[in-house]
C-alpha cells in the first residue's frame, strides 16, 4: 500500500511541476528564453492568495482568482519592462536579466511580507478519501491538484490547436518573421504567452502551498528549478512534453524519497535527468521536425 501512496503523492507533486513546466516551455517555445523568474511568480501567487484569505477574509476561491489575475498582470509587466527591450539582444543578456528579475521578486517579497514563514491556509476544505479500510488515504488537495493539472492541460491543448490565437502562438514559435507577414502582432503574442504562463504559475503556487503549507520569499525557487528540469526532461518547447516530464519527475522524486533516501532524492532526480538527456538529447518528447518526402 505504501507504493500506491507514494505513486499518488508522486503524481500529485508531478502535477504541480507539470503546471509550472508548461509556463517554462511555452515561454521558451515562443521567446526562446529561459524565464528563470518563473519560479518566483509561483511564490507571488502564493502570497496573493494568502493575503486575500488572511487579511481580507475572503474565501479561498477568491484568493485563487486574485492570485491568477495578479500574476497574469505581473507576467505582462515583467515581460514589457524587462524582456521586451531585449528582443534583439543576445540570449545571455536575457538570461541574466531573468535571474535579476528573480532576485528582484524574491527581495520585494522579503520587504513586503518579511522572512518569517507564513502558514498557508488550506485551499480545499472537503475531507480526504479513504480506500481499502483506511489503508490508503488520498488527501483532498491531492485530488484537486491532479484534476487542476488535467484541466489545465486539456484547456491549453484545445487553445493551441483550435483557436486562432493559439495557432498564432504556434506560428510565432516556429517563425516570427513569417508570422508577422500574416498580420500577427508578434510582440503582443509573446506578451500573451507570458500572461498565460504566469497565470498558470499562480495556480501552481496555490496548489503547492496547499500541499506544503509554509510560505517564504524563496518558496518558488526549488519547485521552479525542478519544473524547469521537468520541461527539459520532457523536451523543452513541447506542451505534452512538459506535462509528461512534470509527472515523471514528481513520481521519481517521491519514489526516491520513499524507498531510497530523503536527502538523496534531489540528486537522484537530477541524475535521471542527466541519463535521459544522454540518451535523448532533445528530451522525451523533444520536437522532431518532419522530414520532407
Amino acid at each position: 500500500m505504501s507504493f500506491l501512496t507514494a505513486l499518488i503523492n508522486g503524481i500529485s507533486l508531478g502535477s504541480v511541476y507539470a503546471i509550472i513546466a508548461l509556463g517554462y516551455t511555452m515561454v521558451y517555445g515562443i521567446a526562446k528564453m529561459l524565464n528563470f523568474a518563473h519560479g518566483d511568480v509561483i511564490m507571488v501567487g502564493g502570497y496573493l492568495c494568502f493575503c486575500t484569505v488572511q487579511y481580507l477574509g475572503l474565501p479561498t476561491l477568491a484568493g485563487v482568482i486574485l492570485a491568477v489575475v495578479g500574476c497574469t498582470a505581473l507576467g505582462i509587466v515583467v515581460e514589457g519592462l524587462a524582456y521586451k527591450p531585449l528582443r534583439q539582444a543576445p540570449s545571455l543578456a536575457v538570461l541574466i536579466t531573468a535571474i535579476g528579475v528573480s532576485y528582484f521578486l524574491q527581495n520585494s517579497a522579503l520587504l513586503i511580507w518579511g522572512a518569517d514563514p507564513k502558514a498557508f491556509p488550506s485551499a480545499v476544505s472537503f475531507p480526504s478519501v479513504k480506500l481499502f479500510d483506511g489503508q490508503l488515504i488520498i488527501n483532498s488537495i491531492t485530488i484537486v491538484t491532479v484534476l487542476a493539472a488535467v484541466l489545465v492541460m486539456v484547456a491549453l491543448t484545445l487553445f493551441t490547436s483550435r483557436t486562432k490565437m493559439g495557432k498564432a502562438m504556434r506560428a510565432c514559435s516556429e517563425d516570427k518573421g513569417a508570422a508577422q507577414l500574416m498580420g500577427i502582432n508578434v510582440d503582443r503574442t509573446i506578451s500573451m504567452v507570458f500572461a498565460i504562463g504566469s497565470g498558470l504559475a499562480a495556480i501552481a503556487g496555490v496548489l503547492l502551498c496547499s500541499a506544503y503549507p509554509t510560505l517564504t520569499p524563496t518558496t518558488g525557487s526549488m519547485p521552479g528549478i525542478k519544473a524547469f528540469t521537468a520541461a527539459v526532461f520532457g523536451g523543452i518547447g513541447s506542451i505534452p512534453g512538459a506535462a509528461l516530464g512534470g509527472v515523471l519527475l514528481g513520481i521519481i522524486e517521491i519514489m526516491a524519497k520513499t524507498y531510497i533516501s530523503t536527502q538523496l532524492s534531489d540528486a537522484i532526480v537530477f541524475g535521471v535527468l542527466i541519463i535521459v538527456l544522454l540518451i535523448k538529447p532533445a528530451g522525451l518528447l523533444g520536437k522532431l521536425v518532419p522530414e520532407k518526402v
Binding site: 486562432k164 513569417a178 500574416m182 500577427i184 521536425v289
Partner: peptide
C-alpha cells in the same frame, strides 16, 4: 502581402492551419 524567399511555411502546422494563419486578420 509578401510571400517570402524560401517559402517560410509553418512546417509543424497543417496546410489548412497555414492558410488560416494567412487569413489571420480576417473573419472565419
Amino acid at each position: 502581402a509578401l510571400c517570402p524567399e524560401g517559402r517560410r511555411v509553418f512546417t509543424q502546422m497543417t496546410v489548412e492551419e497555414n492558410l488560416q494563419m494567412g487569413g489571420y486578420t480576417r473573419t472565419d
